[in-house]
Design a protein around this nucleic acid. Structure first.
Lengths: 128, 128
DNA sequence: AATAGTGGTAACCAAAAAGTAACTAATGGC
DNA sequence: GCCATTAGTTACTTTTTGGTTACCACTATT
């Protein structure tokens, strides 16, 4: 095996973007925060099938990559608010385009609700 | 746990898009095919760190989701050409925006090459 | 007769990601 | 004294993903 790297700046920044947001949960988290900050528990309620462990982990990674701001208030019971950074706001129009693309490319799909099936994968109804 | 689904059409189509292209290799594959069709071996050479098994698998999934066309020629040795469908072409500007976003959001990164480190994760140099 | 070349597949194994259930701290209300 | 509340953490298990090696078909070349 010769090369040990991908030798193309555009592919490369794309790889980097997908390393940061290219998974099941992160785009939804960013999307849900697009109208303002939200508490941990609220995010967990709006994405009912994510486990607390994984949500915590995704939020931590997004924070480390500079996409989320985490504000913890010294109250009892605790309150933690998550909000988007400027970096993340710059990503919102692109997320919007990704969602528009799905609506156009898969008109037979019904995107009113994503049912979450047993193994945790999101699945979408066929339109009848 | 109450709801078993995500109750938001926009989040939902976004989830669907990420189910289709939201992983390490698929965006690169689509990007590399943006200038025309390419053979299996060429793709494998341009993404030197993907294993044949995984490449085969990703190509199959992309074909099933209607993003790739696979043409197999009855020659010896075999020749198989992969190319983008219309659906996939519609995604290219969005992929472009994702890569532009990384360049803007992480100016300290050097996207000339993605080095691939031991565990297969792509990593990018810091600019010095 | 052996080898190269292409696009795979099969069996097997390792690593990463994700799920589950129980537990914590600190306070207010009953 | 007991329970509820919130945002987690911990330990453990399961699922998913990815990697490795060997192998195949079929022909041309050496």
């Amino acid at each position: 095996m010769a090369r040990k790297y991908i030798d193309n700046p555009n592919a490369c920044s794309l790889v980097h973007t997908m390393n940061i947001i290219g998974n099941k949960w992160k785009p939804i988290i960013l999307y849900l925060l697009s109208n303002g900050s939200m508490r941990f528990g609220m995010l967990n309620a709006l994405i009912p099938t994510i486990s607390k462990k994984v949500l915590t982990n995704q939020l931590k990674e997004l924070e480390n990559d500079g996409l989320l701001l985490r504000q913890s208030f010294a109250e009892i019971p605790p309150r933690v608010e998550y909000s988007l950074t400027e970096k993340a706001v710059g990503l919102l129009p692109v997320l919007r385009m990704l969602s528009d693309w799905a609506n156009e490319a898969y008109p037979e799909m019904d995107f009113e609700q994503c049912r979450i099936i047993e193994n945790g994968k999101a699945s979408v109804q066929q339109r009848v």
